[in-house]
Write a protein that binds this DNA or RNA. Structure first.
Lengths: 211, 211
DNA sequence: CCGTTCAGGTAACAGTTGTTCACTGACTAC
DNA sequence: GTAGTCAGTGAACAACTGTTACCTGAACGG
């Protein structure tokens, strides 16, 4: 295993964390592309050159942040998929889990939402690739569901992509709600209703497809 | 009226256009926050100081681009709302119109998609405000539809917000499809199916709401 | 204990940035 | 025809950028 609890390694990890955190807090109201290497090191309380001991450049720092943010998101997705219960109860669980994620790691979520279509190609593509993986996982889970009996694979993937995108818009809604103040429950209600609408569409999909 | 066809005004408008176009083409693979004033003037073939004759700063240039981009989008939305025909035929019209918009003004659409959650607060909020207006318009149109009989206003707005967001994800899908190559028709199919799924959910919404 | 490794710091570099000032000269209003 | 307006220019500024080569000293392996 890679325990690596040397004193030196501890220091190393600490400043690496400081760099990531500094970048993350700076990214609250800025975009990655407009973030300078020196700004990050200054906010982290480290000399500019120390940056290169950890990252090749800002793109590298960006992809590291993607990995980190998607790790927590992956955990959330896994929880969602393994959540048992009736299909419409599962919607409640999804919205609640996304809300928890936004509460626990707002900076990570904001980073993902912002850089998904952002100006740094490497980061953008890293996020897109991982979201494709998520969509596939969700699609696989959906395929096992009795509600999807008789669905073509193309139909399943279009649904899972819709769900992934809806996850992102829900997260974004939670973020703006959290910094605008008190309409958190309204955002929850909206997301729940939209998810339920999609669910209803799913239930009656096969029946209405003929027409 | 403000005809203003003086020779001086013509020159003025020309360099203003050059500045906007230069910024727009530079924004194909970058974000507004990372775009420098001098880069724009250099790409426009103008001295840096000329910039200030037209904009107070980059934020101002950004909001001007928002206005321009949303003007074309507003036209599309209006066409969508006034489109007659059966409800599911209207879905085809929506996807086609968005496709046309992406084909005609890819830079504007990309700018909107990128800066919607981007790093420049002024631009972000300008876009959000206009999207709220669009959602209200769509909501009003939906309210007149016989399919929405018995719907609460909150339910109508959650649907219109879902539709606006889906418009954006469709536009984004078209954009990535257009620069990745040939899966344009696949993107069309996905967007259409998703819209139809939402439509099916809408039709059976009232009936399933009780449970 | 001693030589090595290596995270971090210092100093300097060439380039770029936003912004100001005074200036030109083609257009305009009278 | 002439005086004035004003879009665009040129030069200069302090501040900042990413990146380099070299140095320092504490933790490390043996």
């Amino acid at each position: 295993m890679s325990a690596e609890t040397g004193l030196r390694e501890i220091r190393r990890r600490r400043t690496r964390r400081a760099l990531l955190d500094a970048a993350l807090s700076e990214l609250a109201e800025r975009s990655l592309g407009s973030l300078g290497l020196r700004e990050v090191t200054r906010a982290a309380g480290v000399a500019p050159t120390a940056f290169y001991r950890h990252f090749r450049g800002m793109d590298d720092l960006g992809t590291a942040l993607v990995e980190e943010a998607l790790a927590s998101l992956h955990g959330t997705v896994r929880e969602i998929l393994t959540a048992t219960g009736e299909a419409d109860r599962r919607g409640d669980a999804v919205v609640r889990l996304i809300g928890d994620l936004v509460r626990d790691r707002p900076a990570h979520v904001r980073f993902l939402v912002r850089e998904r279509h952002g100006g740094v190609p490497a980061v953008r593509e890293a996020i897109a690739a991982q979201l494709d993986v998520f969509a596939d996982e969700i699609g696989a889970a959906l395929g096992c569901d009795p509600l999807s009996a008789g669905w073509e694979t193309g139909e399943v993937t279009m649904l899972s992509r819709l769900l992934v995108d809806h996850m992102f818009m829900t997260a974004s809604a939670f973020l703006t709600a959290s910094l605008r103040g008190e309409d958190w429950s309204a955002a929850t209600g909206t997301a729940l209703a939209q998810l339920r609408l999609i669910h209803v569409g799913r239930v009656h999909w096969a029946g209405d497809r003929a027409r």
